[in-house]
């Protein structure tokens, strides 16, 4: 265990050699990168929806309008995790609220890193909502007269699935804008 302790102390000593502003800005850059990893989710989900939509149109060519509508509605909802991540990354880069903060540099840098890491949670809702969109499009192709019910159930399920993404966004925004850790220092 001594080796691990030494490495951590070595890392903190090394970081102390820089000005606090530089450490915080470096953490911002890495954090913006982490936040964008959530883009994997909507990509897979919406691709699944497109594939299922194509399959449904092949089986039920006369219902292609309904299939397209449901697929695109579902895909648009699946997009929102990607948008949240993009907004957090842009806030971090262009409107960083913690840059001039006078508290200990390590805590501020860790908060900024944590905000970015939290947004990785956008992968889940992206994939899940895209799956819902694909299945909805498939069923509407087979039963176009149930389109309203299918859309309602799909949107309801997608809204419930979004909640973990919202939790992540709330934590990231708390860490950036209303950080409770600085008062404890």
């Amino acid at each position: 265990m001594d080796e691990i302790g030494n490495i951590i102390i070595f890392l903190f000593d090394w970081l102390d050699g820089f000005s606090p502003r530089a450490v915080i800005l470096a953490a911002t850059a890495i954090s913006a990168g982490f936040a964008m990893i959530a883009g994997i989710g909507p990509g897979i989900g919406q691709g699944f929806a497109a594939g299922k939509g194509a399959e449904a149109v092949g089986d039920n060519q006369e219902n292609s309008g309904n299939v397209t509508l449901v697929m695109l509605l579902g895909s648009a909802v699946a997009e929102t995790s990607g948008i949240f991540s993009l907004v957090v990354a842009l806030i971090l880069l262009y409107a960083n609220p913690l840059v001039g903060n006078e508290a200990a540099a390590i805590v501020v840098a860790a908060s900024v890193l944590g905000a970015g890491l939290a947004m990785i949670a956008g992968i889940g809702p992206g994939i899940g909502q895209g799956f819902a969109a694909g299945k909805g499009a498939e069923r509407v192709g087979q039963r176009p007269e149930y389109q309203n019910v299918v859309v309602k159930v799909m949107l309801l399920g997608q809204a419930v699935g979004q909640t973990t993404g919202i939790y992540a966004l709330v934590i990231a925004l708390i860490l950036l804008f209303a950080n409770p850790l600085f008062a404890l220092l």
């Binding site: 309008g65 397209t68 509508l69 695109l72 509605l73 648009a76």
Partner: peptide
């Protein structure tokens, strides 16, 4: 544009 055309059925 794709979303608006399809949701409001502007074909």
């Amino acid at each position: 544009v794709i979303l608006v055309i399809n949701v409001f059925n502007l074909y």
